[in-house]
Design a protein around this nucleic acid. Structure first.
Lengths: 175, 175
DNA sequence: TATTGTTATACTCTATAACTATA
DNA sequence: TATAGTTATAGAGTATAACAATA
């Protein structure tokens, strides 16, 4: 098989997505599994590991107006999100403050310490992501990331059941 | 639309794998989630759903010499594999026959009915895979599949913990 | 002694239901 | 009445441990 050159020339795309039906998912699963394994190592020490990182990162970079929006973005159930946030609050990385617009809701904001910690772990996460893609020919990693983003967007767009995030994703909410 | 060209021009791969650290995994997760959702629909009616399909497909196309090899290929624990196979046996899609080389082991072989059923579902799986990639520019889907395969291989290669399959994967075992 | 496969058990993760407080 | 968040509970999925048969 042409393992070395990512056989861009032999493509028939729509007719032959992969060697066998289901292979696409097999590869996706393998890549995600490997990614998560490295991710776990990179965020070791952070409460709730990967999930903790994702919550903290979303809070800092996206400022979701409430827990529901946060959970929807990460595809995390609200009941799960509660104890994730509990752990981050206990570690003094984030705080629950009353949402300005709705007294039922809480807005999650990072503490200064939380922002510092996030920065530290982001360096490590960015490092392993780069390392992971580095085994690819330089142009390929950019192409891959780009296509993946496109695919992810299309998928979320066309399947409501898979799509608890709707149109709000990858928008930065107002502060 | 800013969504169509996910900044392909601004990418410097190793330095900026994605907009934010962790984004790569977020997109991977979304794509896999969407993929699995469609997969589930496609194999509806097959015992054990996706897992059942994967086992049946591996048995037919790869002829693993025993359950351990089969489980390793699919990254399924042997204790889980037991009941997956139980279900397929009960549906008369596969049989457990004594492995010729080792009386401890069982070789899983598909019945004629099993092969027919697999063919039917493979059509459906191939269809949704194509459909999923079809929303991409034609060249992109081939590139994506190709890079994904490459990535998956590299990842399995360099991390033993993620890699219960070792070198045997995507080889066809002897019959 | 190590390995294959099975079974039973325990654990983790996630979702469901019920509740309080707001809207 | 519906929604945000919390809590407790139940369920699915997975891994761990112990076992029998064989290498």
């Amino acid at each position: 098989m042409t393992t070395s050159d990512t056989n861009r020339t032999t493509t028939q795309a729509a007719t032959a997505p992969a060697a066998l039906p289901g292979d696409l998912g097999w590869h996706l699963g393998m890549v995600l599994r490997g990614y998560q394994s490295k991710f776990e190592d990179a965020v070791e020490g952070l409460p709730e590991g990967i999930r903790g990182f994702q919550v903290l990162s979303s809070v800092v970079h996206l400022s979701p107006p409430n827990q529901q929006a946060l959970g929807a973005h990460l595809a995390i159930d609200r009941t799960v999100l509660t104890y994730l946030i509990d752990a981050l609050v206990e570690a003094e990385l984030v705080e629950r403050i009353p949402a300005p617009t709705d007294r039922r809701a809480r807005k999650i904001v990072a503490t200064t310490h939380g922002r510092d910690v996030l920065k530290k772990y982001e360096t490590r996460v960015a490092a392993f992501e780069s390392e992971m893609l580095f085994c690819l020919p330089a142009e390929d990693s950019a192409v891959f990331v780009s296509i993946l983003g496109r695919l992810s967007m299309d998928i979320r767009g066309d399947d409501p059941s898979t799509n608890p995030c709707a149109a709000m994703d990858h928008l930065r909410w107002e502060r």
